[in-house]
Design a binder for these strands. Structure first.
Lengths: 209, 209
DNA sequence: TAGTATTGGAGAGCGTCACTATCCAATCAT
DNA sequence: ATGATTGGATAGTGACGCTCTCCAATACTA
């Protein structure tokens, strides 16, 4: 398959494919001469993943490169690989200073209350802290019971997710990393629809002032 | 309070505040002369909301303007206001053609299975469809049982959220609209942490092979 | 009242980002 | 042999979120 055929198969302009090649998102084709390279179905699939990550998931090219890199070449520790993947996902939050004895108090309190490990090195801990700070800054702090309710239910959902993880290591990494990224938009859409559904019932049911 | 004092109080450069004024995100101060305007605590709070929306929530200036506009001047129907807010939130998905008899088959199937209203005019329906399509494109489709599990739990969470809604209309709109936007990053961070926590237990518990 | 500082407002400039377009020499297809 | 296509490099583009500069009007300060 030549590049123009790959473009046809993927529905993307040749220029865009060249761009992804240059940026290292798409693995190079098998060079058959100085001006020719062969592409296959793997490239088509990869392009679909790239578009899924840069589109609905909303990753930058840089972030997508990191995620794809983890899938291509994961460490031997799933736990750490997941951590790396999370730190590549938005929102990007800069790490707190090393000196700070308690850089993420809100996140720490939440995780302790939930009985989950608190490790300030996790990107998601900083993300949680930033998100909680934002709710406070905007004047709508998340009450602790509510936070616990969220955490408890998401924890159950996470167990459900991990139960379905493939056993083969490479597949497991792909499942975990892509699953983290790809299912998030689904989750948000479902939450929004649920809110609308509940709001509709309330409204129709007589939202007395 | 003059603009330089507002800058001090909010920690933002004067130029940025002028930018938000120009873009219509921040309400103008009370003009006391041709070259002077008075700002108050409301402006400080508003700036905090703006930064929360454009920062952690990740909204563009354009999207933030829409959300803020809904809070300032909501319709009388909470349900519709929520719908407008959702369509301003990322990811932005273009609406399907009007002619298409079944533009969002995956979302429709999911909502019917969940027993929720399916209305193709909802932005979140298109978002759900796009998100589900992305999982398929990337080769990791969401199984129906899993989708139902997600939907069921998020629906419960939504009920929990709406129970705590203030009764005063203006506050209710603010709660619903800002809550949709502000709590999403919290949700995602908690999910990521839960995944990491579960993965840690699995890894330490002996991830054979 | 003279002189300096600050203000609101408008315009242009800047750095980043995700492409997109152009060019080129080597090679392929006929 | 000759026109099209390729990989590769470089430059251009349009959107975005600020940021800078300028200005005349006004405010404070002595």
């Amino acid at each position: 398959m030549r590049i123009s055929e790959l473009a046809g198969a993927s529905g993307l302009p040749v220029a865009t494919i060249k761009f992804y090649l240059r940026e290292g998102l798409l693995q190079p084709g098998l060079a058959t001469s100085a001006t020719q390279a062969a592409y296959d179905d793997g490239h088509v699939r990869r392009l679909r993943v790239i578009r899924a990550l840069t589109g609905p998931v909303g990753l930058s090219v840089q972030q997508a490169r990191t995620i794809l890199g983890l899938i291509d070449d994961p460490g031997d520790d799933l736990y750490q690989t997941l951590g790396s993947a999370v730190s590549a996902l938005p929102p990007v939050v800069e790490a707190a200073s090393v000196d700070d004895p308690d850089p993420y108090p809100r996140a720490r309190a939440a995780l302790e209350a939930l009985g989950q490990v608190y490790d300030p090195r996790f990107a998601a801990v900083a993300q949680l802290e930033a998100a909680l700070t934002a709710t406070e800054d905007a004047g709508m702090p998340l009450s602790e019971p509510r936070l616990l309710e969220y955490g408890r239910r998401l924890r159950e959902l996470a167990e459900f997710d991990l139960e379905q993880m493939p056993s083969e290591p490479h597949a497991a990494v792909e499942y975990t990393v892509l699953g983290t990224a790809l299912y998030e938009p689904v989750l948000l859409a479902l939450r929004r629809l649920a809110h609308q559904d509940v709001a509709a019932q309330r409204t129709l049911g007589g939202d007395a002032d």
